[in-house]
Design a protein around this nucleic acid. Structure first.
Lengths: 218, 218, 218, 218
DNA sequence: TATGAATGAGCCTTCATTCAT
DNA sequence: TATGAATGAAGGCTCATTCAT
């Protein structure tokens, strides 16, 4: 019977609804201020019920991170279908990343939360945590793929190791984007204003810089 | 008499001792888990006394961030005294940054905390918060200086705007370093292990990449 | 099913039990000295649970005031059923009031607390505060009724405005009674002892004085 | 030498200054919210010094009550010098009382505080508490005197006991005035507004009522 | 599966008072 | 007499989590 399967799917649906609610709450009150009561109220479920779907509050945050990384991967996957030189794909991914964070800063916050988890035991046993890990790998592989394409079409210097380069691009972009995220919240704005630098153009400039760095020199 | 001056210095000293204690506590229990009770016990002061030196718990975290940014600036300032091409100075600063975060991850966490503060009113009125802001500017100016040196000695492409470039370098390094920080805490290790990538060499590689990107092309 | 109704009633019951406990604590320790811990211990509930029934400590005090004013109203209502001239009813109400305060000084203290609340916003929004206000009005209307009866049966001078007179009687009795309350707590006793004045007879005397004042003159 | 005397006087002066400061603080922050820090800052003395002049915080409040009762007595004493029938004097005292409370509600609050003190031991040993007691007696004697005058000039019914009557007048006026005090703070205003009753006229009306009650009937 | 009442450890903060100088 | 740093008990309140129904 597919009855078990149906149950599983319904459970998954509920989980998604709870994460929806969490997003909504965070949007209203901020990430750290979200309480289980808030989520219960938003879902119109009882607090106890939440614990049937999520082991604890952390798991909800984790659920957000998982969803976020899934959505981001979807964007990256789509970029890979475009028929352009590898370097262009990398640039496109950068744009996607920036857009994603600006549109859905909650997920970015959730990523940071996920990364702050120390409990290794938990990270390796919890299924959602594992899915986050998988998504991170997938994400990494998309970037790697784009780099490999670039190395083949000659737009990217093939003396680099693609996988390593991917990590670097990912990590450094993350830094840039975090600044963008901060700027949105008014931080460092004085400094950034001084330089007459808007995020958009800075990010473009950075991608250009990276591009120069990894472009093939003849 | 400098009696008033002496008092002021002693007060400052106490403040430093309390921050020392906070560091110690965080080292033992983690950043978020630090409580005022912990700090009181570590200092061997009463809880009430802490509030004579710090308005609230936040202020202690801020004190950490201030100290951290001060220490980092000291390192950067020292780099500027070295007689080498600008590009080398930038590389050296990168190394310093990485070392700093690895040796004293607490400060990095404090930076993140500082940046997470939303209360603009507070940021602009609190003297320590203001010093943090100043330190950030100073930090930025060290990087800018190194870049300008490089542009003059021909090691760095002078078609970039030095100040903008400084922000990009700072922000992207931040991203890299954050990964280093995560790795220290066991995170993402699976991914990074796969790539047989240690932070050290990744960072070097990244600096090289940036270097290529901003190197003067004839 | 009346299951929801039953729940509501049980919740109300719990509230009453908590107020009972508060009374007991105040009896032992005094009004201002009552702490939430005390109440929790007395109720044999956890501190957290108290906050399920009362928003904060203030709300418990308010609950006391509400209960007190309700009980007092019950006494006044009963007086109105007696078949006697209006002036006699007023006297009887006076007696009731005095008895009430002497038997349950806690409520009197709670009234004073209630009256000391400044936060208008709160007074108008909190349901219990509103009920206190209503009870005060009801109380006032009982006195007014008695006066009107007296004016009709000729025992009270009808050149006064009944409502205004009611306020005066209420307010002045309040003053007398407060003295009684003080005396119970050993205050001013020297002065009052000198005058060989016990509360009982002073109050009677006062009511007589008022009675003379408002009695119809031909 | 009068050096000791001078010292005593200077000490008294300091005490007065501290009470001045307390008044100022209460005016700004409210009675219960006054802290020793506030007073220290306002006086520009150190907190420790306050304790050289006042045994504890209670003693400052008590000092306020003492000063208040002294000031009130001064007003009552002046009334007694007027050449009018006793009943008029009583009325005048009522007016004075009302004015006093409206102009200086702080003292009224201090009276209430004084009366709330339970510690009999303290009341009988502390010199300021004793002076409060004396002032209360003095106050009572002024009212009594006015009544006696009225009984002699025929304006007041001499079948009452003057001393007892004085207590009643004092206590009931206190009640009225407390309502005035409440009204100022926005309380019960709905009720009182309904009755279109302003304090001024209510108080007048009350004094008239009392006057009728104690007027000599032939 | 769903509920929601109950828990209770834990946290930050305040403030009257003391005491060494 | 004056200081003001230090104290430390106390207090109100929050919130993730559990469990009997």
């Amino acid at each position: 019977m597919g009855t078990e399967e149906r149950k599983r799917r319904e459970k998954e649906k509920r989980r998604e609804l709870i994460i929806d609610a969490a997003e909504e709450v965070i949007r209203k009150k901020g990430f750290e201020s979200m309480t289980m009561d808030d989520v219960a109220e938003e879902t119109e479920l009882s607090k106890g019920t939440l614990y049937l779907y999520f082991k604890n509050k952390s798991a909800i945050y984790l659920g957000l991170a998982e969803r976020g990384s899934r959505l981001l991967n979807r964007r990256f996957a789509k970029v890979l279908t475009i028929d352009k030189p590898g370097l262009q794909l990398i640039r496109q991914m950068g744009e996607e990343y920036l857009d994603f964070v600006r549109e859905q800063p909650i997920y970015f916050h959730a990523f940071i939360y996920y990364e702050s988890i120390q409990d290794l035991e938990f990270l390796q046993s919890d299924p959602i945590a594992k899915r986050c890990e998988e998504n991170a790998r997938e994400n990494h592989s998309y970037i790697t793929r784009a780099l490999q394409i670039g190395m083949q079409d000659g737009s990217i210097d093939d003396s680099y190791d693609a996988k390593q380069l991917a990590v670097m691009i990912w990590a450094s972009s993350r830094g840039l984007v975090q600044v963008a995220y901060l700027k949105n919240s008014g931080h460092h704005s004085a400094l950034l204003d001084d330089i007459e630098l808007d995020i958009e153009s800075m990010f473009k400039s950075f991608i250009h810089l990276l591009g120069e760095g990894m472009a093939k020199k003849e």
